[in-house]
Each structure stands twice: as structure tokens, then as C-alpha cells.
Amino acid sequence: MLRFLVIAAVLVMASCSYYYVNTDNERLGIARQQYEQLPRPPEFSKIKNITARKKAFFKYMRKGVTAENTRVSKERDFLLALKEKYQTDSVTPRDLVNAKLLGELYNVKLAKNALTKDWLTQMLLRVDVLPEALVLTQAANESAWGTSRFARQANNYFGQWCYSKGCGLVPRDRADGMTHEVAKFSSVSESIHRYFMNVNRNRAYKALRQIRAQLRTKGESVTTTFAAIQLVKGLNKYSERGEEYVQDIQAMIDHNQEYWLE
């Protein structure tokens, strides 16, 4: 399960983003959005019937995905309101403080603490929801439907890496000279949050964000199964398998159509 080095670089800011979710949303004028901590996951490996395991996995993970999309939606609403204020020259000092906080979280700093059209454009590219079909499918693929060692022992359902000794679990097949570990999270909810932040701000997935923006420009939904299949095209750097990985995820999304709520 090798990954491009750039994929895990975002984990350096992970503790910052976790703190933000619990506190700074209130400062942004957004309803406080704490993690809806998921309960301990079922022992998926003990569910022998494949259909039953799929249903249990998607049911369990869906609540966490919905919570993250709710958080991102509130942040995006703040940005859209801020854009209107910018266009009418009615941005307040408090708006700038809040914009700076959100910008730092998404790695888009305000130049000279001044709001600009370019900053708003870049932020709206990053601060947006993800289709549940995409998130749930990657979680199923990366965690072997919740049965992998990393899911069971590290709450890591998306294969995220880290690079500080002891930050996670050492892969048994790690090549000589490699130092990465598979990140360990405090909860499944945190794993889902880290995945969202990774996809929404890591430069490796710029193509995904552009595809999502193009769908919005066309007036199309970004949460449908169709959108999920399109967005996967921007994940060719998620795995060293590249295009083969993209095709596998697309096939899984299509194969599991009956489970997606739109």
C-alpha cells in the first residue's frame, strides 16, 4: 500500500485541524461543530456474509462522512456570504479575522491580511463537500472493508501515512530505507476528518478540486454517484498504481450503486 510522499505531508497540520473543528468554528460564526464520535466499530471480519458486511460497513461509516460534509458546508456558506460582502464592499474587521483563521486551516493565507478575489476563488475550490460514494468506497478499499490491521489497530481507514517515529504502525512490507508509518488516529471520526482535509487541501489532489468546481460551474450536483466517478479521476496520485487505482475505485462505486444515498 505504497503512497506518494506528498500524500502524507498534510499530516503535519493534522493536530491543528482537529483543534479547529472543536473550537474555531464558533469564532467563525458557524454553529459549533464537534466530532460526532462514532462508537467502536463492529468486528467486520466476523460478518461472513459479504452483503451483510457491506451494509454494516457503509451504515457505520456514513454517519461520520455526513458529519464532515456538514462541517464543510458550514464553512463554505461562510465563504459564500463573505464573497457577497466583498462584492458590496461591506467586509468587517471580524470577517477578516475569521477569513484568516479559515485560510490558515486550508493553507491559503491572506496576502497582507487583505481579502481578494483570488483568495476567495482558491478557498471555494478547497472548501467543498465530497460525495459519500467516493469517501465510503475509498474507505472500503483502503481498509479492506474495515478488516485491515491499520483499521483495527490504528483507526486508519484511508491509508494515510505519517513520518515521525512512533506516529503510527510500521507496515510489515515497508521497503528498506523507507521511514513512513501508517498514521494512528484517536478515533474513526478523526480518520475521516483527516481524509477530508487531505483531499481538500493537498496539492496532489488539485485535479479533483478542479473537476468538482467544473461540475458546480455547469450547475451539476457534486454529491451524486456521477460526481463521485468523475472526482476519482483526480485521485491518480493517491496510490502508486495511478490510473489502475482510479479505475478500481470507479468500478467499486459503480458496483455498489444500491448503497448510495443521493
Score class of each variant (00 low, 15 high):
5 L>D: 12
7 I>Q: 14
15 S>V: 05
20 Y>T: 10
21 V>A: 13
21 V>H: 04
23 T>D: 08
24 D>N: 12
24 D>P: 00
28 L>T: 02
31 A>K: 13
43 E>L: 11
48 K>E: 14
49 N>K: 13
50 I>F: 13
51 T>A: 14
57 F>N: 06
58 F>D: 05
60 Y>A: 04
63 K>M: 11
64 G>K: 03
65 V>S: 01
66 T>R: 11
68 E>I: 00
74 K>P: 00
75 E>G: 05
77 D>T: 13
78 F>A: 00
79 L>V: 03
80 L>Y: 05
86 Y>Q: 08
87 Q>R: 14
92 T>Q: 10
93 P>E: 09
95 D>F: 07
99 A>Q: 06
102 L>G: 06
105 L>I: 12
112 K>L: 07
122 Q>A: 08
127 V>S: 01
129 V>T: 10
135 V>F: 05
136 L>H: 07
138 Q>L: 12
142 E>M: 07
156 N>A: 14
159 G>W: 08
161 W>C: 05
168 G>C: 03
170 V>F: 01
172 R>I: 10
174 R>H: 10
181 E>K: 02
185 F>L: 02
190 E>D: 13
190 E>V: 06
190 E>G: 05
191 S>I: 08
192 I>W: 08
193 H>R: 13
195 Y>F: 14
195 Y>C: 06
206 K>P: 00
206 K>V: 09
213 A>C: 02
213 A>R: 12
214 Q>M: 08
223 T>F: 00
224 T>S: 15
225 T>V: 15
225 T>A: 12
234 G>L: 07
235 L>E: 11
238 Y>F: 13
243 E>C: 00
244 E>D: 12
244 E>I: 11
244 E>F: 03
258 E>R: 15
261 L>Y: 04
